[in-house]
Nucleic acid binder design. Structure first.
Lengths: 240, 240
DNA sequence: CGGTGGTTTGACTACTTTCAACTTGGGTGG
DNA sequence: CCACCCAAGTTGAAAGTAGTCAAACCACCG
């Protein structure tokens, strides 16, 4: 009865039948986007809330010198900040990676839903807290993890997130990310990333090839990454 | 009639007399902390919302190997996530840097205030969006700026934030951050940070010395940093 | 007046980028 | 169906950046 968006939120907090229905209705007219299409750009005035019903996207920034930094991945079910409409302008851009189905929820409608369905509001606040935790984990990776640890850590994160929404099969999953994109996510050059991937393959921990990741030794990968999934807050507060 | 917390929020959105009064009342019993005291640690169950009425604090994470990464600075008037109470456990720690006056707002009380004073809710959402924008800027710095650009960028940010709350005098301000702390913020070693600071001094852009920053050539510093303050969202949306 | 934490410096090492060339995999148009 | 093309991936060598280790220095505090 739901879609990937409500399925994700439902795992955070009970939306209630009417809450879920309201969200489904609000996202019932998704638009299809080709790969590498900007949904919104830095400097634009924020519009509606974007909801990824299918496909992947990235948040990113371009520096004056043309370098790009990826800030976050949006996977099916993810959405952007619910209150983003309060801002005068975007401080980053959002672009599709793959073909994608993207719904938009008007700011007013979003407010109405949040006001009338406390379960939806709680679930969305939790989703936002997880996104923030993820940003903190990225800052930590960039600042204090070696390049091999950083790569391993991101792969662990993406695997856990993909698994949570049913995109994994055994120890592998579709990962539609080019090495260029990964390099821009991890603050390294594509050349160096390529060498790090080779090293991870050599250790037997994982193999990334065009479009999919195979995790051969999960324990080893987790150990290399120093991965602790607490920041994804999959353990929820009881009696919230 | 307000305090540093309400003053800050008021700049984002009109709190209304009763909204401001409610916040002042809620933060009227601050507790004093010595420097380097943890307010809460990673793994702890989140409690009330912390509000910095005076003094500085940092959010940080410690890695398994003992390395520390600073995630954000909390300056007077700043507070931590309003919905943090929804989480089962903290994904990072918060520690005072200086002596500090910290108020706490109980989760229930916070919810009541947000429900009854829409202006307060809007202002706090905006504050949170700015904090998120700041995290994105940090990720960008760590990933794609050189060390000298990174240092310059952080100094620009801290100056702008300090100025917004009236802590600056001309082109200098009190900056109670050790080089060790700055190094842990910028993902570099204290030794290297020290050399970068020397280089910035040499160019004549700025001089950091024990406890205060003097910006000698603002234009040069901004240029070195590639600083664009849009992410601090000081330009607000009209008719919000 | 000696500690203690913080800052500064030098020499050496390790890691990462740069640059440039070459390979591969898919898709497209003839 | 195949030749071509382009984006993406891979590799080597040289250069540059940042980390490590160790010691000295400094300022403030008790």
């Amino acid at each position: 009865m739901g879609n990937r968006f409500t399925d994700k939120l439902q795992r955070f907090h009970d939306l209630g039948d009417d809450g879920a229905a309201a969200l489904v209705a609000a996202t019932s007219r998704p638009r299809k986007f080709a790969p590498k299409r900007d949904l919104i750009r830095e400097g634009d005035r924020p519009g509606p809330v974007f909801v990824m019903l299918d496909g992947w996207a990235v948040r990113y920034k371009i520096l004056p010198n043309g370098l790009r930094q990826v800030l976050a991945y949006l996977m099916p079910g993810d959405c952007c900040d619910l209150h983003v409409g309060l801002l005068a302008e975007m401080d980053h851009s959002i672009q599709t990676i793959t073909r994608a189905d993207v719904a938009t929820i008007d700011r007013i409608e979003m407010d109405v839903i949040l006001d009338h369905h406390r379960g939806v509001a709680k679930a969305m606040y939790l989703a936002q807290l997880v996104d923030e935790g993820t940003m903190r984990a990225w800052i930590t990776s960039m600042g204090r993890r070696s390049s091999i640890e950083r790569v391993a850590h991101l792969m662990c994160e993406l695997y856990i997130r993909a698994r949570a929404i049913g995109l994994t099969t055994e120890m592998s999953f579709e990962l539609p990310l080019s090495q260029l994109l990964l390099a821009d996510s991890l603050g390294m050059t594509p050349v160096h990333l390529n060498r790090v991937l080779r090293e991870l393959r050599r250790t037997g921990a994982m193999t990334l090839k065009r479009g999919s990741l195979l995790i051969e030794q999960p324990d080893l990968l987790v150990q290399i990454a120093g991965f602790d999934e607490n920041y994804l807050h999959r353990r929820l507060r009881r009696a919230a």
